[in-house]
């Protein structure tokens, strides 16, 4: 598991520019499924045919987003500094003085203009210093429209806990890979679509067209969720290590009640550690899938995570494993 996570977090793929991670995912999932394609927006869609009879099989969509938050270069000034636009919800306090990586390997430091007050930290106040002498040298390494993101890394902490970025949502992608692996050993009756969606961080966009194309009978989303267990965090009955988080609602969606109930009873039945999640802010692909065509029954399993959108998102691999087990139980259930 950790190796898969490390592979997936090693490449930069901001929203709208997901090719690098898409290529990695293609390699990882292809051996376990019947076919893989990309849709017009770039979401990667892998298909695994079920063992049920034709006409009796339902289609189930499992979705995790593969994009991450980052920056787009909008301007290169005469001194070779880069100006940027944020892609996705950047936490600038966390990003200040971070090392950023470009697709071609160029590195730079994300720096706020000298004297910027902490409350004033927003995109316009930042520039990237790639160490170039002047504009000419900078343009050899970077051009307008190139993108970068804070470096990817994963560190093991105590127990089964890890920290790094972008675990949002490469952890979901890794879960899908593991589920596909497991299904190869023990296939389920229904058809399963594994969707690695694009552009979640900029407005849950990719899952929408993917779901439209697939038109599934039901769907589960895999993403991270906030917790109430850090010092000073707002009360939330969800904690790292508390088990797979079965989403009840977030700001974008109220999950299908039947799917939620089904997940809870499966977890109880199989003795899988779980908790219920009500996230008051933030949205997930679940909303886009639910709103597709004439509506899709959709639920979500989240990984409780602290310090979201920072350089060190922290989660517990036990929760991840619980989520995988629960999903396999769901896929096996009618």
């Amino acid at each position: 598991m950790l190796n898969t996570i490390k592979t997936l977090t090693a490449v930069r793929a901001i929203s709208g520019r997901e090719k690098a991670v898409s290529d990695k995912l293609l390699k990882l999932i292809a051996p376990h499924v019947d076919n893989v394609r990309s849709d017009a927006m770039g979401s990667l869609i892998a298909f695994k045919k079920g063992t049920g009879k034709d006409g009796e099989r339902k289609s189930r969509m499992l979705c995790a987003h593969m994009d991450e938050i980052g920056f787009l270069v909008t301007f290169i000034d005469d001194n070779g500094y880069l100006r940027i636009a944020p892609i996705g919800g950047i936490n600038f306090v966390a990003a200040t003085y971070s090392l950023v990586e470009f697709a071609n390997g160029t590195k730079g430091i994300l720096v706020p203009e000298s004297g910027t007050a902490p409350a004033d930290l927003r995109a316009e106040k930042f520039y990237i210093d790639i160490g170039a002498k002047d504009k000419k040298e900078a343009e050899k390494k970077v051009k307008i429209g190139d993108y970068c993101a804070v470096e990817g890394r994963v560190e093991r902490l105590a127990g089964k806990r890890i920290a790094g970025r972008p675990l949002d949502d490469r952890i979901g992608c890794a879960m899908l890979i593991k589920i596909a692996e497991a299904l190869k050993e023990a296939p389920c009756e229904d058809d399963v679509y594994f969707v690695f969606s694009v552009q979640e961080e900029v407005g849950i966009r990719g899952a929408r067209t993917a779901a439209y194309g697939i038109d599934p009978d039901s769907a589960l989303c895999f993403d991270i969720t906030g917790t109430g267990d850090a010092i000073g965090s707002k009360p939330m009955a969800c904690s790292v290590g508390g088990g797979a988080a079965i989403k009840i609602k977030d700001a974008s969606v109220i999950c299908d009640v039947e799917i939620t109930e089904q997940l809870i009873s499966l977890a109880k039945e199989k003795g899988i550690k779980y908790q219920c999640e009500i996230l008051l802010h933030g949205g997930t692909d679940t909303a886009s899938i639910q709103a597709s065509r004439a509506g899709v029954r959709a639920g979500a399993i989240s990984v409780p995570t602290r310090y979201i959108h920072s350089g060190f998102e922290m989660l517990d691999l036990n929760d991840v494993q619980a989520g995988i087990s629960l999903t396999l139980a769901w896929l096996g259930a009618k």
Binding site: R293, A294, G295
Partner: peptide, 16 residues
């Protein structure tokens, strides 16, 4: 359904 949380039901109901 779900009008109060963002006109969600009518979107898919109208489609169907």
């Amino acid at each position: 359904s779900q009008e109060e949380v963002g006109l969600r039901g009518a979107r898919v109901g109208g489609f169907g």
